[in-house]
Amino acid sequence: MVNGRNIWINDLEKSLSTLGTLLGLADRVDVAASCSLLHVPLDAAVERDIDPQITRWLAFARQKTAELVTLARGLSQGTDTIAAELAANRADLASRANSAITHDPAVRARAAAVTEADGRRSAPYAERTTAQRAHLGLPLLPTTTIGSFPQTNELRTARADLRAGRIDAAGYNDRIAAEIRDVLGFQEKAGIDVLVHGEPERNDMVQYFAEQLTGYLATQHGWVQSYGTRYVRPPVLAGEGRRPHGRSVRGDALAWAVCRYG
């Protein structure tokens, strides 16, 4: 009755209605989550940097466990025993449904303006690939590599220094430029045809881009298992998102400048 694969609060009254129907059909009903709670972070209460309005909507593992306890008590002892919890839940659900965070007029206006033509290229593939080959002048089988090079200890230290105020944005960008210079030099020595800048400015491959969009937020302690012993903090899509400014373009431009001027 509680979704173990998302991080949002339950609609307690809706779940209780379903449970009541099931109880009328069976002698016993056990209230449980839809799956193991290892798919969600541990505790939303420890997040301090999230908009308090959004925090009301979050339910990590501990909050979901509390929801299960509330539902079980309401089912066995009656809804009067959980009246306060139901009232708070209704208010939190209404807050999310009516929030300007979840309903961005700019996003809706742009989506409404999309036409069928926006989903088609302005030129056919044969024309585009011919122009690309002529412009780039690459060999028949060009070599390249993946976009992201290893995140070194020096890069992690630079990000930590920036957060702590030990360096400013200009100093941080100097360190990023130095890393890009090393990555480009390595590829040139290796004889690579299509160079990449190595993505030194990013943290997590998903989190970095989500942080540049409205509607998304990053947690401080929302770790979940990715695979093996690797844990990540996935971005949370809390509302309708849009891109207020370009982000990856700056990294590409910096790489070009390093490549062009050294």
Rank of each mutant, 00 (worst) to 15 (best):
I7C: 04
W8R: 01
I9D: 12
K14D: 15
L25K: 15
A26L: 13
R28Y: 12
V31N: 15
A32T: 12
A33K: 05
S34P: 07
L37S: 12
L38A: 06
H39D: 14
V40H: 06
D43I: 02
A45E: 10
V46Q: 09
V46K: 07
Q53Y: 03
I54M: 05
T55W: 00
R56I: 00
A61C: 04
R62K: 12
T65F: 10
T65G: 13
A66P: 05
A66V: 11
E67T: 15
T70Y: 02
A72G: 11
L75H: 15
Q77L: 14
Q77C: 11
D80Q: 13
I82D: 05
A83W: 03
A84M: 01
L86I: 06
D92V: 00
L93Q: 10
A94W: 00
S95K: 07
R96W: 07
A97S: 14
N98V: 13
S99G: 09
A100C: 04
A100F: 07
I101C: 08
I101N: 13
D104K: 10
P105C: 14
P105G: 14
A106V: 14
R108M: 10
A109L: 12
R110K: 14
A112E: 12
T115N: 04
E116A: 15
E116V: 14
A117D: 14
G119V: 12
R120W: 13
R121C: 14
R121Y: 11
R121Q: 12
S122F: 04
A123T: 12
A123D: 05
P124Q: 07
A126K: 01
E127A: 13
E127S: 09
T130E: 04
T130W: 02
Q132F: 09
R133W: 07
G137T: 06
P139V: 04
P142K: 03
T143A: 11
T145I: 09
G147M: 10
S148C: 00
F149I: 00
L155P: 07
L155G: 03
R156A: 04
R156T: 02
R159F: 02
A160E: 09
L162M: 04
L162G: 03
G165E: 07
R166H: 08
I167T: 06
D168L: 05
A170G: 02
D174Q: 06
R175C: 01
A178H: 03
L184K: 08
G185P: 05
F186L: 15
E188I: 11
E188S: 06
E188T: 11
K189R: 15
K189N: 13
G191C: 10
G191N: 06
I192V: 15
I192M: 00
D193V: 15
V194T: 08
V196Y: 01
P200T: 05
N203Y: 03
N203D: 07
Q207V: 04
F209A: 09
F209G: 02
E211L: 09
E211Y: 00
L217G: 02
H221Y: 09
H221Q: 08
V224K: 11
V224W: 08
Y227I: 10
T229Q: 03
T229L: 04
R230W: 02
Y231T: 04
P234T: 11
P235H: 07
V236H: 07
L237E: 10
A238D: 06
A238N: 09
G239F: 02
G241E: 06
G246Q: 05
R247I: 01
S248M: 04
G251V: 06
G251L: 13
G251C: 05
A255H: 00
W256K: 12
A257W: 10
Y261H: 15
Y261E: 13
G262Y: 01
G262Q: 03
